[in-house]
């Protein structure tokens, strides 16, 4: 591009604000990830019932935090990047929270047991008593 470049005397170190000197953290994270995978596999096959989801999600969050912070260098990123990531997560949480909250707090007849039921494209299965009669 520009031919009229003037030499710069800036030291090279400027371009690497955070040189990392060792691959050990990556190795540790990798091992930790494998460990956590094993853990989630074990807890997953224990059929924990109501606890299965929170446990699995907690482990997944821990794993993704490791990936984001170490592998993706969030620990050495600028504030703006961290903010971007955090904001995205906040909005994901919002989307999921309000949508599920809607489904969870609808009036109880909204989707009676036996749904899916009666639309033009599939004939009703398991109709309730007092269901709107068909022609």
């Amino acid at each position: 591009m520009a031919e009229s470049a003037t030499p710069s005397s800036k030291p090279d170190a400027d371009h690497q604000p955070h040189p990392s000197h060792s691959a050990v953290p990556y190795l540790v994270v990798w091992l930790a990830l494998l460990g956590l995978t094993a853990l989630t596999y074990i807890t997953g096959s224990m059929h924990l019932g109501a606890w299965a989801l929170p446990v699995a999600l907690t482990i997944a969050t821990a794993k993704s935090a490791l990936v984001a912070v170490i592998f993706m260098h969030l620990n050495e990123s600028s504030g703006a990047t961290r903010l971007v990531f955090a904001t995205a997560l906040v909005f994901v949480a919002l989307l999921i929270f309000f949508t599920v909250a809607d489904v969870a707090t609808r009036f109880k007849l909204a989707t009676p047991a036996g749904a899916p039921f009666g639309t033009e494209r599939s004939q009703p299965e398991g109709l309730l008593e007092n269901q709107v009669p068909d022609e």
Partner: peptide
Amino acid sequence: DLVWIFLYPLLYLI
């Protein structure tokens, strides 16, 4: 990878 970390438990484990 990050996405898969969540997909894995949600689809396979619970």
